[in-house]
Write a protein that binds this DNA or RNA. Structure first.
Lengths: 131, 131
DNA sequence: ACTAAAATCCTACTTTCGTAGGATGTCAAA
DNA sequence: TTTGACATCCTACGAAAGTAGGATTTTAGT
């Protein structure tokens, strides 16, 4: 939120500066209106692109709401390995535990995240940004 | 390719029209340079946003064409539904095809992406930015 | 028109995943 | 001390997922 306000404030400042520059250029450039128009237009063009870009980037990274999920540390580790495409067996090997234990963890993850499949759990985990 | 040329041509036409409008407004608005500047700037602003937007969209669609070289349209649809956590049965229902067909598609996806599990295929798809 | 790829469907089979329902041990808070 | 969450492991079963090896029909490119 604060970041948004800062960026918006900066943009307003830039706009004001541009207007200042225009007023100055009115005297400086005198009668050559064409050049003046081109410069002003170009500046606004750049500004427009920056603003557009800003909103596009915002749109992509808008889901920043990190919900503290009820997953334990180990469950989170399992979920991450799952999301990396590992099988229960592989996860067991990497965490030095039995495959049955991994299954227990997975079942609890599905329960806690209200998912019916590991792929759904992964999607939910991504949505909650806990992966 | 032809589409690109058409879009680019259209943009050039728009720019030329804008310049035309500027020349006209020089006479029409007379001494009120401030209003003139604001209008011109705004038009360029909009143009800048449109151009920027155009390139952003292009950037996204360019990645989509990388995918087309490997995965077919339907396979891509299946992969996306998979990534959303759907089962083969659910995917079949959503695409109005048989579950066996979905299995065929999934097998080909795994082959093409060199994955051994659907979760791995999802991860690879994300890495390749085709999801 | 011919051809290659895509899309559709199938049977039969193996493997992996997920559930149900336990048991045991640790460790921290009430 | 009791309670509860966490972590570990198990058997047995059913449900998905994935493989192998077909077949047919559309669709798009040369």
């Amino acid at each position: 939120m604060k970041k948004t306000i800062l960026i918006f404030g900066s943009l307003c400042a830039v706009i004001l500066l541009l207007f200042q520059f225009e007023q100055w250029s009115l005297f400086a450039l005198g009668g050559s209106e064409n050049l003046y128009v081109i410069i002003t237009g170009t500046l606004f063009l750049i500004l427009g692109m920056l603003i557009s870009r800003h909103f596009y980037i915002k749109k992509e990274t808008r889901k920043r709401q990190v919900q503290k999920s009820s997953l334990s540390d180990q469950e989170l580790r399992v979920l991450n390995l799952m999301a990396n495409g590992h099988s229960n067996k592989e996860i067991a090997e990497q965490l030095f535990i039995a495959e049955t234990t991994v299954k227990s963890h997975v079942s609890k993850i599905l329960l806690k995240l209200d998912a019916r499949r590991r792929t759904e759990a992964i999607r939910i985990g991504r949505d909650l940004e806990i992966i």
